[in-house]
Design a protein around this nucleic acid. Sequence first.
RNA 1: GCACCCGUAGCUCAGUGGACUAGAGCACUGGCCUCCGGAGCCAGGUGUCGCAGGUUCGAAUCCUGCCGGGUGCACCA
Length: 579
Amino acid sequence: MHFFKEKLASTLSGLVGIDETTLTDWIEIPPDKQLGDLAFPCFQLAKSLRKAPQTIASELAPKLMEIPFIVKAEAVGPYVNVHLNRKEAVSYWLLQMQDNRDFFTSSTGQNRAVAIDLSSPNIAKPFSMGHLRSTIIGTALANLLETDGYQVFRINHLGDWGTQFGKIIVAYHRYGDVEAIKKHPIQELNALYVRFHEEAETNPVLEDEGRAAFKRLEDGDKETLDLWRWMVSVSLEEFNRTYAMLGTQFTHVLGESFYNDKMAAVVNELSEKNLLTTSEGAEVVMLEEENFPPCLIRKSDGATLYATRDLAAALYRYRDLGATSLWYVVGGEQRLHFQQLFAVLSRMGYSFANDCRHIAFGLMKIGGKKMSTRKGQIVRLQEVLDEAVRRAKDIIDEKNPGLKSADATAKAIGVGAVIFNDLKTHRIHEINFSLEQAVAFEGETGPYVQYTHARACSVLRKAGLLSGLESTSEWVTEPLDGDVMIQPLQELDSLSYELMKTISYFPEVRKRAINEADPSLVAKHILDVSQDFNRFYHEMPILNAAPAERVFRLRLTDATRLTIRAALEILGIEHPVEI
RNA sequence: GCACCCGUAGCUCAGUGGACUAGAGCACUGGCCUCCGGAGCCAGGUGUCGCAGGUUCGAAUCCUGCCGGGUGCACCA
């Protein structure tokens, strides 16, 4: 649609003497499709022209009628509403898709590298529904950036270091049941962590023991280190099962411990740049000008902290990986930490600090309360996924018993439901976890979109245009030029036109989703496409239509298929051809 | 106490400067399969857009204050 906005703006520019770019921004999509395809509001002009906006609109309308691709331009109050020539618009959009003129992909990024910090679960703790958010939002953003020509590093910044490991080690020696731990490592290790905190309430000595145990770990004590290594490996084993199910992939899996040998250099650099101050026995970077509390670099006992590790990690991503922009998909509660981190980087003289973004998201709650691993109140992602897949399988058995790859499809749908349910809501909102909602298959859900895709595939298959293979990505018919294809058609009906028009918004939605780091825009858009397609499908015969209509409607069906597929790929959701 | 985020239909959410009755989905009630997949389509009705001021030709949208919920604020991550 952007193309037609620009064309309209170009003509308007000559009429009102304002530059095209500004006018393009002013042009809107009318709230009701009955009103037209584009609307030009005349309020802004009223001041400079000293005329009522209504007057301006009625003067402008007849002049816009002269534009070839416009069939109707009428003043409605202070707006000029414009109706495009449907056949011309549709052939433009179909060709734009066919030639991929910045439709599914573009090259704005020019191969610049963005490092995205995502998922980042903690070792020895269950992978909860809470981690799902960072994982799938980060993945969707990475996918989005790749469609725009960026190189993306997907970095899983594992929480594999810190005092909590000392605590678990203490609890392990005190209360650990080796057999039970071998059977269900994460579950038992987490239980030990919970128990530690319960006991520590009445026995404060434990806290000191925990710190001491962590000190042994830092000092490289063999036995402690072996225990830690074992915790890391069993945790990763379990995480990887979940990642495999979600289809999540990383380019780098680098835990916090990876930066242990890079901390001294960071502290030195801060010191050389005269940024360190000693305060209350600790070394900090004062951030008074920025109005932030000091950023703790080194504890009074000499140990480094979270911020120090994140600085080392940021420098590693910038220097060693060559990333020019760093994104952090981390919960909103860490906002201050990232503000401080970016401020320190900036003070160190790194201009890439301006290209660092904290992509914050809201908490996942349960029963209106924050999940807490310490209190054992969490929802394990794996359990939710398993349940979703079970339910999907039941529905397949009932509705499509002959389906060949039923298990794989059930997985695609169940997992798709859970992912889509999360991604469709703006990331900043808190989510009160509801199993029924997460595994819903009807209405505005992932399965609804997948169903629509499968339905489109089914029609194309019956027309002999799709072999039913995943790899079929090319257009179903030979490329055609211009409006040749739809020339034989009579007037275009509204259902077909609205479907095509909605699809045509895809490139703008994709761009906006990148700029706002908001995958939910893609999810919402693909629901619109699906709804339009299902309405179209219900009303218009495709396979049994007259030849000219049949060709056009098949193309529209294929355009729908390709758009849903592209959107689901961005969201990290599978798109089976049959469900 | 200070700072940030959120507050729209019974529930989950769109809309975040513009047009008339503020829109979807869920739930509830009715329709629709000799016809391309009923995980679908169609029809039914709900709102002090948290409250009060202000800015504006125009405010759910911007500003200020207040209320409610959440999160954060130096040696945890």
